[in-house]
Amino acid sequence: MMNAVPISWFLTLSAILFALGVAGFLFRRNIITVFMSIELMLNAVNLSFVTFSYQHKEVSGHLFTFFVMVVAAAEAAVGLAIILTVFKGRSTLNIDDVNSMKH
């Protein structure tokens, strides 16, 4: 069956990507990288959606992916603006230095 890829492979790929996104989120200190890790996670989830959509022969998964993209775009716009502001104020991108919520 060389012409057929098991669906679970897609999902496993999605899980791997997601886990890598989480890893990036956890282990990286640069705000931008962390942010990108989030995008990576979103992408992983999108893959799952599209896969599910395939499985059910349904277009809804695509739409969810579409919405995720929209949200990601909005998030990127605002998030990057925030990062810019933070950088303006603190001259650092290290996420551990941005902890004024701590106290």
């Binding site: 012409n3 057929a4 890829v5 098991p6 669906i7 679970s8 999902l11 896969t51 395939y54 499985q55």
Partner: peptide, 10 residues
Amino acid sequence: LFPESAVVRF
């Protein structure tokens, strides 16, 4: 969740 029988074809 997804046993081998569910497959994807282009």
